[in-house]
Simulated assay, not measured.
Amino acid sequence: MARSAIGFGMALALLAAAPPALAASASGVDSIALPIEEAATELSANQFVWKDSNTGEAVSIVISLSTQRAFVYRGSTMVAATTISSGKDGKDTPLGTYPILQKEQEHKSNLYNDASMPFMQRLTWDGIAIHAGNNPGFPDSHGCIRVPTGFAKKLFGVTSVGTTVTVTDDFEGGAVPYEPVVDQETAVANLRQSVSLEK
């Protein structure tokens, strides 16, 4: 009896010590032992972590092209992270701060043979968006930011038109932005320009 109790205790300790990314499949994980910033660095392709207590604070998103990650914040607190697949060479995802311009749960590409873009959140009127899609762990899109489907669905549920998205390549070597990176002046200018382009 004592031997099996010790074995069970050791098994629990090993499970607790396992990297959280092992549990964060394409469906994600809502409960993690490590701080979400640390768990974010452990993710493999098509994995995400989500730990949002929905405090009601404004949501913002940081896309790191250098680490192929997306980070979601409520106020200054990171609540989710995922791997992404951004634009491949020659179809680079543009850097900058953008407001979400349009949201559409079931969207088909106007540019690429009616390709499915579930949970699409448009960043530019010329075809750049965040959406669910193939997530091989490296840049492979035509400029969009592809995320795992489970993450795309959750993200779609917490954002609104106007939510700020910052696309950057400043984070090297697995670094994680502990605070959201938001250039409000650029976001407002982009929103004004997008409204005039839409007319």
Score class of each variant (00 low, 15 high):
residue 81 A to P: 01
residue 167 V to S: 10
residue 88 K to V: 07
residue 14 L to W: 06
residue 82 T to A: 14
residue 151 F to Q: 09
residue 144 C to I: 10
residue 184 Q to S: 11
residue 35 P to G: 02
residue 81 A to H: 01
residue 161 V to Q: 11
residue 83 T to S: 04
residue 56 G to E: 06
residue 54 N to R: 13
residue 146 R to Q: 14
residue 88 K to D: 09
residue 74 R to M: 02
residue 65 L to P: 06
residue 167 V to M: 13
residue 26 A to M: 08
residue 99 P to K: 06
residue 119 F to P: 04
residue 115 A to L: 13
residue 88 K to R: 15
residue 36 I to A: 04
residue 31 S to I: 12
residue 48 F to I: 03
residue 52 D to K: 04
residue 21 A to Q: 08
residue 32 I to T: 11
residue 29 V to R: 04
residue 130 I to C: 01
residue 42 E to W: 08
residue 58 A to M: 11
residue 50 W to E: 00
residue 108 K to S: 14
residue 20 P to N: 12
residue 54 N to H: 13
residue 60 S to T: 15
residue 137 G to F: 03
residue 199 K to T: 10
residue 175 A to E: 15
residue 189 A to L: 11
residue 195 V to W: 13
residue 9 G to C: 04
residue 78 M to S: 01
residue 162 G to T: 07
residue 122 R to H: 05
residue 91 K to T: 15
residue 88 K to M: 14
residue 47 Q to M: 02
residue 43 L to M: 03
residue 154 K to G: 06
residue 39 A to E: 05
residue 53 S to R: 14
residue 120 M to H: 15
residue 184 Q to P: 07
residue 71 F to L: 02
residue 62 V to M: 02
residue 166 T to Q: 10
residue 67 T to H: 03
residue 132 A to C: 12
residue 78 M to Y: 00
residue 141 S to R: 06
residue 182 V to M: 09
residue 162 G to E: 07
residue 2 A to F: 09
residue 101 L to I: 09
residue 119 F to G: 08
residue 62 V to W: 02
residue 138 F to T: 14
residue 185 E to A: 12
residue 29 V to A: 07
residue 41 T to P: 00
residue 95 L to E: 08
residue 63 I to S: 11
residue 175 A to F: 06
residue 114 D to M: 01
residue 14 L to H: 03
residue 117 M to V: 07
residue 43 L to C: 01
residue 7 G to E: 14
residue 20 P to H: 00
residue 28 G to T: 03
residue 184 Q to Y: 08
residue 168 T to M: 12
residue 22 L to D: 09
residue 48 F to E: 02
residue 60 S to P: 05
residue 177 P to D: 11
residue 129 A to S: 06
residue 184 Q to A: 14
residue 30 D to S: 14
residue 71 F to Y: 13
residue 189 A to D: 09
residue 185 E to M: 06
residue 179 E to G: 07
residue 94 P to N: 05
residue 19 P to M: 05
residue 26 A to N: 11
residue 122 R to M: 13
residue 130 I to H: 01
residue 156 F to M: 06
residue 130 I to Y: 00
residue 12 L to H: 00
residue 134 N to W: 13
residue 177 P to R: 12
residue 12 L to G: 05
residue 150 G to C: 12
residue 159 T to C: 08
residue 3 R to L: 14
residue 146 R to V: 13
residue 12 L to Y: 00
residue 46 N to L: 03
residue 65 L to G: 07
residue 29 V to E: 04
residue 2 A to Q: 08
residue 192 R to I: 14
residue 161 V to L: 05
residue 45 A to I: 02
residue 123 L to Y: 05
residue 62 V to F: 05
residue 187 A to P: 11
residue 72 V to K: 02
residue 193 Q to P: 00
residue 85 S to A: 15
residue 66 S to Q: 15
residue 78 M to E: 01
residue 172 E to V: 01
residue 177 P to E: 10
residue 9 G to K: 06
residue 156 F to D: 14
residue 100 I to P: 02
residue 180 P to R: 09
residue 136 P to S: 05
residue 45 A to R: 07
residue 170 D to T: 05
residue 102 Q to A: 07
residue 115 A to S: 15
residue 14 L to I: 13
residue 84 I to F: 03
residue 135 N to H: 02
residue 174 G to A: 07
residue 199 K to F: 07
residue 45 A to S: 10
residue 118 P to W: 05
residue 78 M to R: 00
residue 172 E to I: 00
residue 100 I to S: 04
residue 191 L to M: 13
residue 184 Q to M: 08
residue 128 I to W: 03
residue 95 L to D: 06
residue 132 A to I: 12
residue 28 G to A: 04
residue 52 D to Y: 05
residue 183 D to C: 10
